[in-house]
């Protein structure tokens, strides 16, 4: 499998009062096409910074990032992104917000109408098309944001703690949706999270990141069967992966 994303010696420094402060890196990473990779680390470790650099929304201080055989130097258009706060605009309905992605990309809305209803069906948003974001629960809003991030069929999905603000039950539910969508369409996914359980459940690879300045300390391949339903989560292997990662963070002194 060719590498979809290659990260070479990438670091990011911010200057505060003239003094450069290293926020992340230097780090190397290879993400293969169709992988689901999570960047797992404590808050402030620079994992979101790395994600923004991969998206081309932030420049690297050192090193380079290659995505789909192109060096990243400006915002990438072949990606879909999700953030902790949704990118839904309050003046459009759920459907209007999904269409916004297509309109901004000059794509034909009619050609995507079937795809939209399939996508909404798959995350149980059917029947909510004409509601505005404020009429939805936080979980439903993130489901709509997921549809918005996927509708243009991006090869790569960059997720910045998309489930960070949701309650435990809703998180569990949307993880399932996210996993199904990934298994069906096989985009390359890079997700930032600080939940160990979420990382083990969803990823094919977990990158463990140290506290500030973040370094990719360890990459753990998670060899659990798909789909990772509750049975898998109850298995000994799942617990072992969790314990392994917990020990790493215990070593850093963050838990």
């Amino acid at each position: 499998m060719p590498a979809a994303i290659t990260i070479q010696d990438v670091s990011k420094s911010f200057s505060t009062e003239g003094q450069p402060i290293l926020a992340f890196g230097p780090a190397d990473l290879e993400v293969e096409e169709g992988d689901f990779v999570t960047l797992l680390g404590p808050s402030g470790c620079g994992k979101s910074t790395l994600l923004l650099m991969i998206a081309g929304l932030l420049s690297c201080t050192t090193g380079k990032i290659v995505m789909n055989h192109e060096e990243v130097s400006e915002p990438r258009h072949d990606i879909g992104m999700m953030f902790q706060d949704s990118t839904l605009v309050p003046w459009r309905t759920v459907l209007g917000n999904i269409n916004l992605q297509l309109e901004l990309r000059n794509l034909n809305l009619d050609e995507y109408s079937v795809k939209i209803s399939e996508l909404m069906e798959s995350v149980s948003l059917k029947g909510y098309e004409h509601l505005r974001p404020h009429e939805l629960s936080g979980g439903m809003q993130q489901r709509a944001a997921l549809c918005q991030a996927l509708i243009h069929e991006p090869k790569t999905l960059l997720l910045d703690e998309p489930l960070g603000k949701l309650d435990a039950m809703t998180r569990e539910n949307i993880r399932k949706d996210l996993q199904n969508l990934w298994m069906n369409e096989k985009p390359t996914v890079l997700m930032v999270t600080h939940s160990i359980e979420e990382a083990v459940q969803l990823s094919s690879k977990v990158c463990v990141i140290t506290p500030r300045p973040g370094l990719i300390d360890k990459t753990i391949e998670v060899k659990l069967p798909w789909p990772r339903d509750l049975d898998v989560k109850r298995s000994q292997m799942f617990t072992d992966y969790m314990a392994e990662i917990q020990e790493v963070f215990q070593g850093y002194g963050v838990i």
Partner: peptide, 14 residues
């Protein structure tokens, strides 16, 4: 404009 919306609109290439 919120960071999220700014970033979102940049990735669309509009």
């Amino acid at each position: 404009l919120s960071d999220e919306l700014d970033r979102f609109s940049k990735t669309t290439g509009a």
